[in-house]
Design a protein around this nucleic acid. Structure first.
Lengths: 201, 201
DNA sequence: CACGTTTTTGAATTAGCCTTCAACTCTCTG
DNA sequence: CAGAGAGTTGAAGGCTAATTCAAAAACGTG
């Protein structure tokens, strides 16, 4: 028998297991047994904690998004120079490679968000928060005279997040030429033009 | 009994039905019965033409992509001025609204492309063709002296397609602020900076 | 317009998954 | 260290979907 755990510990395990299962089978392809297997439990045990698989999946997506976002904020906190911040943030928004689990999970949501309002809301809120994150960097840089913005900071921020998202898809789809480094360079080329800073970090 | 049709006619119907079914249920959620219902047939009839549902789905995705791309080329052909072409092309790459079936279909592929090599290849090849399309416009504009490119045309083209893709996702996820018009304006703001043309069309 | 072919149906079979639950195991507590 | 409570298992039942196939229907052709 699998080690017995407390309600809250097991729920955390299951969220993690669901995350992996979604990546492997897609939001609409996950089955109870997939989650159970990832968690090293039986379907019955999963159902004991989450009588509705759909709810578990939403929690898993939510947790994955938070983790992704929090990680970005944490990395960002290590720097003070706006130009450095911008470069670091651009890099932290891209997958490390085609298998990057965090981005894979987010990508799974893209299609489902068009059909499922909850997923749409989740994804939209992540996007908006990331835009704010960039906007703060841009505004600070502009205030300090480091950046000379070529457009309003909101538009630039929206475009930066959009570029990250899109290259995330390209990379996970294994584009033969566009990998993490190339994508970063492409986004940086936009960021340079938009900030008037050569971002040589 | 449903009207009897020739093998090739019916296969076209089924591809169309599969397209609709994918949009409604997701690539990993479609069932034989969904396709049958969309086509006004029974599951048996679907299986008669496509013994493997997976193959039908791939064909449907392929057909949807081709249609999307061909439509863009056709719209583009109506214009000669590179600036006009660029503006029209940007608009034609965005969904008309959250329900736009062509973009919805493409978005369904995003997540699956990370898991399924065939979908990855399909999506990557569409991306590359769209990049070429933009690159041709940019190069022509540069040659005519209408555009003054701020970076190499390949990078700009890649970023333009990436922006389209990403805003397609935002729009289908029903972002409360970013609709087709706003997305077009955001992309145009980048295009203006990248081409040095005010693109006032 | 009858015959052979192709397409479609509908029912039967099979497979897979969800759901339930009684029994069992673990852990904590008094 | 016994009992209670919480977590887990595994098997049984039920439902849904995929698959198969004989029979029926539609079509084309001579």
């Amino acid at each position: 028998m699998a080690q017995r755990k407390s309600r809250s510990d097991r729920r955390i395990d299951l969220i993690e297991a669901a995350r992996k299962a979604i990546i492997r089978h897609g939001v609409d392809g996950v089955q109870l047994s997939h989650v159970a297997e990832e968690a090293g439990l039986t379907s019955g045990a999963v159902l004991y904690h989450y009588p509705d698989l759909g709810e578990l999946l939403v929690e898993a997506q939510h947790a994955g998004m938070e983790r992704f976002y929090e990680l970005r904020l944490r990395r960002l906190a290590d720097f003070t120079d706006p130009a450095e911040k911008l470069v670091v943030t651009i890099r932290s928004g891209l997958p490390t490679g085609p298998l990057d689990p965090d981005v894979r999970l987010l990508n799974e949501l893209g299609g489902a968000a068009g059909r499922n309002r909850v997923y749409g809301v989740l994804l939209t809120s992540l996007y908006d928060r990331q835009v704010s994150m960039y906007q703060a960097i841009l505004d600070t840089g502009a205030a300090l005279g480091v950046f000379t913005l070529a457009a309003d900071s909101l538009s630039i921020a929206r475009n930066l997040v959009a570029l990250e998202d899109a290259y995330g898809y390209r990379i996970t789809a294994r584009h033969p030429v566009i990998g993490p480094a190339e994508a970063a360079e492409l986004i940086l080329s936009y960021a340079r033009a938009a900030t008037g800073n050569d971002l040589s970090h």
